[in-house]
Design a protein around this nucleic acid. Structure first.
Lengths: 217, 217
DNA sequence: CTAAATTTTTAACAAATTGACAAGATAAGG
DNA sequence: CCTTATCTTGTCAATTTGTTAAAAATTTAG
């Protein structure tokens, strides 16, 4: 449809709009103006209008935005209207936390297989009827199932070769929790969640919040 | 020292520099130029020099940067030279993953207590000699122990009142994993880790990477 | 039909990134 | 030990990107 490139900054804000619109729906709010929403979200109304306009005119002058309509449109933009088939690499604490987290499921992100290389973990039941498979079966699984996204929750040394294997099998989305940057071809999308770096960022801001009191978010 | 405000963008890049410098140290590399580092990290050399200069002149013309020196300086900047005393709210899967993760410990981030409201979990041993305490003991604990950072890993409905209690007791750093924005005073620092939003961002990029092939990052 | 509300669109402003280069340091050769 | 070519930072200026404000256009409601 629109071939215009959307900046990364806007994309990062979309899920937050989505969350607030969901809350509004729960509250039974039918319509909302950019001004009202800006007060709730603590961003400028101007930014909200500008962001939403990149994807099309969802609002109506004199009326505002229809909450439910906008909610579903944003879901479509982010691809939440189609289920994403996911696999999990690594059944440690973090991996299990991800697999068991029901909110992902609710949004159409479905973990359908778990892999680990530890013989002690293989065969264990993780969630529902999902049991840990041997990582050596990875290629065979991908050949016979649709896999949109692979979540990597293993140490960095193992993460790099596993990512290569995933890419080789045609997986194009990687959710990376390992503390390393993965080198992948252009058409593969990697989303990093570096918890240590998040914590260090907090540490810095904490250390400097005393002197430097005009900290923006 | 420097009262100049450092932009959020730079702060977010600091931990990544730190990670790469750590890798270089492991490889036995003693010195590195911004040019070499830029190739490894896939950022411009100009940005590296500009970023580092905000904190002082760590490099030397004709030589480059001393890896070990720069590594330790960045650690100091991020406050890693001092241990951070942490507590964990919520002993579910995610909470346990955080508590057991040894890399945080290695960087001076020490979880020293865990709280939960579920009677079935209270008393359970989580890691080392750390057992889950009743959340009702939260205030008493903070009164008698130093708490720099509290990690919140509980559902959003509970997260908001718990954050209020933490703030009231004087906790000034919150690492928030709940899917909600926490309203806190200016002098309290909140770092959000919204996994759902990260996953939605991945979904968007995946959906649009085919048509829109000039995806940066 | 007119006034009020609110989006869309355009323009101004601010921030971040990149490129260019002078100045300083190193290293090699005589 | 000096001289010169090479390397590399620190910094300034230009460019690009992102944000905010203002103006124009559209719709609703009385």
């Amino acid at each position: 449809m629109e071939d215009m490139t959307i900046s990364k900054a806007i994309i990062k804000r979309l899920p937050r709009y989505y969350r607030y619109l969901g809350d509004l729906m729960s509250e039974g709010v039918e319509r909302i103006s950019s001004g009202e929403l800006s007060e709730r979200m603590h961003v400028t109304a101007s930014q909200i209008r500008q962001d939403l306009n990149h994807f099309g005119g969802f609002g109506q002058q004199g009326y505002g935005y229809n909450v439910s309509y906008l909610y579903h449109e944003i879901a479509k933009i982010m691809g939440l209207d189609m289920a994403s088939h996911m696999i999990l690499i690594g059944s440690g604490n973090l991996g299990q936390a991800l697999a068991k987290y029901t909110n992902f499921r609710r949004r159409g992100f479905l973990f359908e297989a778990v892999f680990d290389r530890d013989p002690q973990k293989i065969g264990q039941k993780i969630y529902g009827d999902m049991t840990v498979q041997d990582i050596s079966e990875l290629e065979e699984y991908i050949r016979t199932h649709q896999v949109d996204i692979a979540a990597i929750a293993i140490p960095k040394e193992q993460a790099v070769p596993v990512a290569d294997r995933l890419v080789k099998c045609g997986v194009r989305g990687i959710w990376n929790f390992a503390h390393t940057d993965l080198a992948v071809p252009d058409d593969v999308v990697v989303e990093n969640v570096h918890l240590s770096e998040s914590l260090m960022g907090l540490s810095y801001r904490l250390k400097n919040s005393a002197k430097n009191h005009k900290n923006r978010e």
